[in-house]
Structures are given as C-alpha cells and as structure tokens.
Design a protein around this nucleic acid. Sequence first.
DNA 1: CCCGGATCCTGCTGGC
DNA 2: TGCCAGCAGGATCCGG
Length: 295
Amino acid sequence: MPELPEVEVVRRGLAEHVVGRTIAEITLSGARVARRHLAGPADLIDRVQGCRVVAADRRGKYLWLVLDQSGDEAHALVMHLGMSGQLLVQDPQTTAPRHQHALVTFDDGASLLRFVDQRTFGGLALTDLVPDPAPGDLSAHRYGIPEPITHIAPDPFESVFDRAAVIARMRSRTSAVKRVLLDQSVVSGIGNIYADEALWRAGVHGSRSCDAMTGPALGRILDHARDVMSDALSQGGTSFDALYVNVNGASGYFDRSLDVYGQTGRPCSRCATPIARERFMNRSSHFCPVCQRKR
DNA sequence: CCCGGATCCTGCTGGC
DNA sequence: TGCCAGCAGGATCCGG
C-alpha cells in the first residue's frame, strides 16, 4: 500500500500489535524479498531472532521496526511495501496467503506478522540506525534513521520538514513539477494519487516546469499535498481493492473523496469539465483541462 | 549534480 | 470464448 497515508495506517497497526513483543523467528520465502539486505537472507534471519520490537517508525513511504537485542546497538528492520505490499497481523491458526514472502513469529505465541506482496517490488532489510542529520523535535525519530534511507527527504508531517528549503530546491529544478513532487529525495511520501490530487487542488498542471513557477505557487502545492494526505489518513487511506489494507485487512475510504485520480471522464467537482488522463513518466496523470492549464 | 527513460514483477481488465 | 495489449498505488539504475 504505497503512499504516505496508507503506510502510516500500517505503521499505527504495527505500533498497536507488534511493538513491545519479542521476535521468535522470521521465515523468508525466496531471496528476493531481502535483496536489499546486502549481507544476505541468512544474516537477516539470524540477527532478527530474539530481538525485542522497541518502536514502529516511518519516513515518507518507508517503515521500520526498531529492534533491540540486549547488549547490542539498536537496529532497524526496514520495510517498503512497493506497489502491492501488505503487512498483516493474523492469528497463528490462519494459513499463509498467496504471495507471502516473509513471516514473523513472536515468543508469546500470539498473533504473527505476514509480509505479502503480489508484485514483489517491496522488501525487507536489517540495517543500522544513524542519527537524523537534521534533528528537530527530539521525540521524533529518537532512535535515528535507517542508514540506507538517509537520502530520503523528510515528509511534510515531520518537525524537521523545512518548507522554505524544499521550495528553494524545487525552484532550482528544470523538471516538470509533478516529477519533482514524486522525487522522494526532495519531499517524501507523495505518490501518483496524492500528486494528482494536490495539483488539482492547487489548480496547476503537473507538466509545468518547476523553475518557471514562483515560490508561493510551489508552497501552495506542497501545502495541498500535506492537506490531501492528512484528509486521506483521517479516512484510513485510499484503496480501490483488497490489495490496499491495514494490518487487519480492512480498506480505507478516501477513494470516495478523490477529485481527479481515477476519475477520467467524470465531471470536475469545481467546473464540471470532464477529467482527462494522459501518460506521463510511464504512468497516468489525471487533471482538469480547464482548472489546470498547461501553458 | 540533474534529466528522462527503462526496468524489475504479477494479475486483472477490456477490446478485438 | 480466448487472447493479448495495456494498466496498476514505486524506486532504482543507466547513459547523456
């Protein structure tokens, strides 16, 4: 379940159901799910065993469990859901679903954690935690940031998010504004749905070049991105089908509130012009041809 | 460094 | 009915 609101829904589920428990064992089906763990799957399996889950943390679309093994430095089990990943907390009596790639059991013998991923773009890795290069609120990311994701920029909900710096960085880019919104090293958490929704709310066409836009205009887009993701989170996220669910397998409801994404041909809720869809960056972009002029 | 495009996968849908 | 092109919420890697 890809974008920030959906990942945050999952993080909350892990905080409720997994934090505080001690891992008995992790089982991987095949090597692909741990391909980002450079020391290999056997190393991950060995080192996760017996660790206590201290926290469930997130930056953008990346999620990690802070693991503590007595007498050792804390590590992070980093998880990315890719396009189709799910984390499910289920009763031990349940059977493994199709496309399960990892299974975590706990020493209390209660619920277990399944990593399920149809398209296998997601994955797991056990990594070191490094201090946040730009620490803000000490309560946020107090255990640090996983080393492999230090290139991921803060998301708009973090206290370290520097709105002015992000705007300045965007203005220096010659790419289309939608491409830059999707660049996780500039601002993280925004994906194809919320980029389209934010651009519609701002009345800007995604193909407009960043360097041709004013700072305030870029700021409005960023604010809309934060707001639309906040709205989505309050509805439990966006899901069109059973692929995008929380740890209990339940869907969110924000699909009913989308203004442009997946609304091709439907009337724009501001001006009634049919919503258009175009290919852009090997994916679909949805926009109102009247509210969002290309120039 | 930034830019644009190709690539990794599986499954579903819609048009012929 | 069957087949196949096109599409799906993402990140990374590569040549330019």
